[in-house]
Design a protein around this nucleic acid. Sequence first.
DNA 1: CGCCATGTTAGAGG
DNA 2: TCCTCTAACATGGC
Length: 268
Amino acid sequence: MPELPEVETIVRRFRPRLLRKRIAGFEASWPRQISPSVARVRRAVCGRRILELARRGKLIVIHLDDGSALLLHLKMSGRLAWVDRSGVRLPEPHERARLIMQGGERLLFCDARKFGRIRHVRDVEAALDALGPEPLSAGFDAARLLRMLGERRRRIKPLLLDQAFVAGLGNIYTDEALFRAGLHPLRRACDLDPNEVRRLRRAIRSVLRDGIRRCGTSIDWIYPGGRMQDYLRVYGRAGEPCPRCGTPIQRIMAGQRSTHLCPRCQPP
DNA sequence: CGCCATGTTAGAGG
DNA sequence: TCCTCTAACATGGC
């Protein structure tokens, strides 16, 4: 799935089309993806105006004019598509749900694997509070990260993938951040010294900003248009020489996820 | 056919 | 409580 930079790119692209639009209909062909139910979401959103389109972690947040919101999670293979007033379009494969605007424009939710979710929530703040801090926000400072890491014994890689710890990192950007910080993915969080924590924070923020600047990472047909794949230094490069020291990049498993690292630049 | 995949979560067990 | 692992969700590409 899209990680933070891909979701941010999607939100920026769709915001101008959705802002101030009034919703006239909602349909879904795979009801398990819709919460609390297709009928209840339809009742909740029809007639509402879209006030804002935002991102929180990997969630797309569609704020409505009654204070409620639609939360879209693309998971592994979700994708958005847009149908304008003319209705002319190529057939979108794996279309699972659509939000119909007054005037006929449509936001399509497409998802080959059906892991994606659409949720309508009345208490938006409560729903978003389940996530950890935004890594690009001012509140994500070194002192706070040091405190957060200090009370965790987990290995750093699975901890960074935990959305309740920090929101938005996925498998690609976590490996890239740990490489930039020179930290081994299996290090225990509480063992990192203040200097290493500062490096980690800088690495996370710089790799996410670079990802956004490149419009995200495109490594298959699910998410086209990004350029960050050309700037990844370890992810998907097992066996290739480390760009910094030439040592072959290693691929190991960490928390059931494939993990890429330079054994020399990221010593255990 | 077997293995892999940018994600998350429930449940079991240490 | 905390952490780790497995299975599950469901499909497509290699």
